[in-house]
């Protein structure tokens, strides 16, 4: 959601006396971004998640895979903050250990999709004509499969498993990045400075990489953040459907799926992993919204 008022305020602040001194783009970005309180909080939350992802197994109070048949399906308590599952495993510990999986799958799959999509988008915009037509038609075909369906189709070919989930979600992200990068590259391409560089005889590769690509960077960053939330959600959905992580992997979607059998007696087994997914995706989406309002107020949903 673009918030012109915040942007206005930010613009005034930038123009005020204290910032007349040299302001780098990063400083300016930071000044605007600080105004977005929700996005700031989300950014801190995402940072914490990254810390948890790195140190997960070391900070988890219990083992994530060792069964404990004395404490099966216990509710929340001081010993087990989020209770235990059907094997007596501490759900809180499993959520902590699972953070790494969700963040890794989400980030890597978007990264792969973003790299391929960006290259395709740049080529498409720069060369135009038939190259552009072919790349855009391929994107149309990928776009013809709604939502999660393309990922399911790809997993039907490759077989279930987390690795294949990453491949499936990467492919699912390619057309998205290709279109967005193409769009913003087209507008950069027609600017005077690109024309000027071209006229002094710069090679195509240099033109694309050094001059057009940086101009598309902000839309790539914004889209990247926004897509991570969706990617984590899609990966969790696929694991929930039994197509992704397999037990006993502490993947959030798979944990939730395991809890379905105990829904009437022990709802906490499904509740906490779902809450973890929800808060993580929410944080990435709010961060993405904030980045968009700061970097690229022109883009809307």
């Amino acid at each position: 959601m673009a918030n012109p008022e915040t942007a206005e305020v930010a613009a005034k602040v930038t123009l005020s006396s204290e910032s007349v001194e040299k302001s780098s783009p990063i400083k300016e970005f930071w000044k605007k971004f600080k105004k977005q309180r929700l996005a700031m909080v989300s950014g801190i939350f995402v940072f914490l998640l990254i810390i948890i992802a790195i140190f997960g197994p070391a900070i988890a109070p219990y083992s994530s895979e060792e069964p404990d048949y004395v404490n099966v399906l216990q509710g929340s308590s001081w010993e087990h903050l989020a209770g235990t599952d059907a094997f007596g495993r501490d759900i809180f510990s499993r959520i902590i250990v699972g953070t790494r999986i969700s963040l890794f799958v989400g980030t890597i799959s978007v990264l792969l999709g973003a790299v391929v999509g960006t290259v395709l988008g740049l080529i498409s915009a720069f060369y135009g004509r038939w190259v552009d037509s072919i790349i855009m038609r391929i994107c149309d075909v990928l776009f013809a499969f709604p939502g999660i369906l393309l990922a399911i189709g790809i997993i039907a070919i490759l077989g279930p498993g987390l690795g294949n989930v990453i491949i499936a979600i990467s492919i699912f992200n390619i057309p998205n990045f290709a279109r967005i990068v193409r769009g913003s590259a087209l507008s950069v391409k027609s600017t005077v400075y690109v024309e000027a560089t071209k006229s002094i005889g710069a090679k195509n590769g240099r033109l694309i990489w050094k001059h057009i690509f940086p101009g598309t960077a902000s839309s790539i960053i914004v889209n990247f953040t926004m897509r991570i939330g969706t990617a984590i959600l899609t990966a969790a959905s696929l694991s929930f459907l039994g197509l992704g992580a397999q037990p006993p992997t502490p993947e959030w979607g798979a944990m939730l799926s395991n809890g379905r059998d105990y829904l009437s007696t022990s709802p906490h087994v499904t509740f906490y992993p779902g809450l973890a997914i929800f808060l993580t995706v929410l944080a990435f989406n709010l961060l993405g919204d904030g980045l968009r309002d700061t970097l690229d107020p022109k883009i809307k949903d």
Binding site: G229, S257, G274, I277
Partner: peptide
């Protein structure tokens, strides 16, 4: 934004 971020299967199970 919560509606967009919420895993649908989780919401479904909560409603059930």
């Amino acid at each position: 934004v919560s509606g967009i971020s919420m895993p649908s299967f989780w919401m479904g199970l909560l409603l059930i």
